[in-house]
Design a protein around this nucleic acid. Structure first.
Lengths: 105, 105
DNA sequence: TCACATACCTAGTTATGCTAGGTATGGAAG
DNA sequence: CTTCCATACCTAGCATAACTAGGTATGTGA
């Protein structure tokens, strides 16, 4: 369970440049050092959600020798949202750290 | 949204000693420096869940000059589970950190 | 031609946190 | 003495999110 931070992770994966669903899954696996090996049923709905929210845009591509792919790009709003999410994650993880340690930190 | 880490936070709050629901809410608020100001509708069901799972035990108390209170204590299994949760949180937060930073960390 | 990897999708289940109510008592204020 | 507030407990039902478990289709190599 990714506990609500999936959106930020997907946005971050697309920050480096556009990619299609399968590649995003692979990128997340590598960027998290293997910890997040996400099933398609998790990622595809998330991509649709993010596009619905205008944080991503998508376009179908059919390269001459390849399969059809839906390539996602992060939008301006998506970059802004990612910035927010990163800050929110920082605050959240800090708070959990101190709560788990007894408030001593 | 506490995103699945509520149980660990509640267990950690009870590590210092038994407490009743209202006091636990207060303790969590202080231990998280005000970040987690949890509604009762979040905490009470969580306490019941944790007792159901034998990670907590409870007893009613009626102090001579006070109201009835249900005091929760962490069990042996609860302490063990808390240890696990702390480790899981460490792994999880580390993975999110690197995923958000681009895997450079 | 048969299997496998790539590539996409969705319906339905489950878990969990929260909203929005409700009950009851002790103490303070008027 | 009654009215209000803080304390203290509870639950039904809602919303969201991630995952399970399917399905479709195509290119590639055996």
């Amino acid at each position: 369970m990714l506990k609500g931070h999936l959106d930020a992770i997907v946005l971050a994966a697309l920050e480096a440049g556009p990619a299609h669903g399968y590649a995003i899954i692979e990128a997340i696996r590598q960027r998290s050092a293997g910890t997040f090996d996400l099933p398609e049923g998790t990622v595809y709905p998330a991509l649709h959600r993010l596009e619905q929210a205008s944080l991503l845009s998508s376009a179908w591509t059919t390269p001459p020798n390849g399969r059809r792919r839906r390539v996602y790009s992060i939008t301006r709003a998506g970059s802004a949202a990612l910035g927010e999410r990163r800050k929110a994650w920082g605050r959240f993880s800090q708070a959990v750290d101190t709560a788990l340690e007894g408030g001593r930190a």
